[in-house]
Design a protein around this nucleic acid. Sequence first.
DNA 1: GCCTAGACGCAACGCCTTTGCTTTAAGGTG
DNA 2: CACCTTAAAGCAAAGGCGTTGCGTCTAGGC
Lengths: 209, 209
Amino acid sequence: MSRKPMVRPGGRSARVQQSVHTAVRELMAEVGRDALTVPLVAARAGVTPSTVYRRWGDLQELLSDVAVERLRPETAPADLGALAEDLTAWAEQFLDEMSSPPGRAYIRDALLGDPDGTNAGQCSAYAAEQIGVILGRAAARGEDAPGVETVMDRVVAPMMYRILFRPEPLDAAYAHGLVSGLLGGTAAEGSRAREPRARVGHVTRVKQR
Amino acid sequence: MSRKPMVRPGGRSARVQQSVHTAVRELMAEVGRDALTVPLVAARAGVTPSTVYRRWGDLQELLSDVAVERLRPETAPADLGALAEDLTAWAEQFLDEMSSPPGRAYIRDALLGDPDGTNAGQCSAYAAEQIGVILGRAAARGEDAPGVETVMDRVVAPMMYRILFRPEPLDAAYAHGLVSGLLGGTAAEGSRAREPRARVGHVTRVKQR
DNA sequence: GCCTAGACGCAACGCCTTTGCTTTAAGGTG
DNA sequence: CACCTTAAAGCAAAGGCGTTGCGTCTAGGC
């Protein structure tokens, strides 16, 4: 018995995967994401629908794959010479891309068709990797830097949470506030400036049911 | 021309909505979530499938509605006499419920069938409301308390982000660490303990609050 | 160069989804 | 209280998506 014919990444399978992925991207631009169907994608890709169903199982899983591909960062984060500037610039760009309508759609798709959480984990790994580069540079400069997980909790998580759960638009100032809240000792403004403390004596109603 | 017959929340429509919702819950327990179909739910609810399609448009949107209903907190957060204890207890319970397999499924469903983000916003509003109660109590006691948005960023968002994007399980210590990282000056442990600093030798003392 | 087995093409079936029309009843009006 | 308007549900049919069994092909190992 052979030991590793588990998967066949090369040859025909690879061609099919690529042609299906490009078909999805093309059709998303042409007819819109809502009009996508598996038979439509399969026809454009030159394969039969059953092939798509067997490989991906579902339109959502296919879209999730494509979304993760689109969410992969293409370039290393800019090196501006200091941790605060690097992190701020990265966070602002990240927020700008992710909070845009297409960005939100990709995030949703990536989370949607992902039973085992592999694709979502990949997205998180992308962000962690970029942050790791920035923190590594800072450490090489001798700067005092937090850990990757801390940056994920303090910068990435709040942005993603608001993108997913809040309808309100987000601006670069929010990203800036998160970074300075984490790094800056005294310059902790941003979101906090909007609502510094709880109002004493304000009535907080909760429906008791 | 009458001015407010825009929607009819009472009467037959209300009965249909309730019977469909209960049908979803019953069938989810009986046949499992994957085996749910609109015709199946409709038959159990005693309505025709077209009714479900017209009202909800999609099985996912229906499941999203049901999920939001299940994610609504039933009781006010416990009053333990101090902000730190109240917030910690709430965060631990929140994380416990949300990170469980059914909790994750509900969150996914709520996000899934939600084109305009209304249901997701409702989930966020539930958490904000609970936190508002806790902070209101703290303010009434004269305690120094952060704002609701700050707690959302520092406690809720990291937990939800990890639930959605990370496969690893989460324990109560993580929730505790987030709260003490926000409130406690010196007792900032939890997740940070796992990865306190960046790779290169240096001191990472993250500024608290 | 042969052999094994994973992957794709083909085709048919079942059920979900959609849609136009009809019927019911909720809620306002006189 | 009877009437009227109209939103919402019932009904039924057509179209298309999703699924599956079987045959064929090719990638990779021996």
